[in-house]
Amino acid sequence: MVDNLLLLFNAPILSAQLLVDGILIGAIFALAAYGMALVWGVMDIINIAQGEFVMLGGYVTFFLAAAGVHPLYTVPVAAAALYLLGWALYRTVVFRVVDKDMFISILATFGISIFLQQLANQLFQADVRTAESGLGSFFLADGLIVVSQIKVVSFICALILGATLFLFLKRSRLGQAIRATAQNARAARIMGVNTDRVFSTTFALNAAICGAAGSLVVMTWLVHPYLGLAYTLRAFMIVTVAGLGNMASVLLASLGLGAVENFAGFLLGTEYQAAFVFSLLVAILVWRNALLSRQRKYLK
């Protein structure tokens, strides 16, 4: 660890490489986090199956790419497939826990998460998969920084997707209904908003955005059945730091997390990178709560 730290000091260009890689992956985290914030804000549900949606989106792209479709074209397909899955899950399970105690919905979505994860494990095997985009790399700073083009493309894709969702919520009629429901579900219902439809759309949209994120993940990185929970907890961490309503701070927190994670992985060794992510979640929650407790409040 000390060696690696010294290496960073001696070769600052390495830091730049880590930073760029981290930020590029961070945009994908932002998609999952934004979806989580949406569902949390509108339906008062913390969706533990968030990461499984990402994982399944990745598999959609993987299989289509294996069938010969260029992976970039499969992003909308993954989103559409996950939209349907999200909608189906809402209609079968989630609508029953919307107005229940928060722990009930956490546990129910945790059940969904285990179900999807294990189903993927049974159907697709535990192997690590990637989809080859066939794009090359940019070489910056005389070739000292290597940036694969697919990461840049996926970064841009993620930003476009996020912006589209943002505009949809701001401009469209359904988006307005969703935001109204987020502010006060009961009042929205009285004013004639079909909140059940709002909930199903919100949950499905969330699944779709996660599916698209997964599609980008499999191109830039990899998928396997067990990667879900890490994305869920990253999303939760980002939302806890950034708050529910603010797109810009969600993006900022995500990019920050991507960078921090990359540095930690380099310093501690990749075998501790996952441990770092989960410990960071604990540390952030405890730290935020300690700050609030000075105001004699707590996280809620």
Partner: peptide, 24 residues
């Protein structure tokens, strides 16, 4: 630290603790 958290924050924080311990 953790028992100061309430409700869903406690639940998810302990989820993180459990996995972090395994990873370590």
């Amino acid at each position: 630290g953790i028992l100061g958290l309430r409700g869903q924050y406690f639940a998810i924080c302990t989820l993180g603790v459990g996995i972090a311990a395994g990873e370590i």
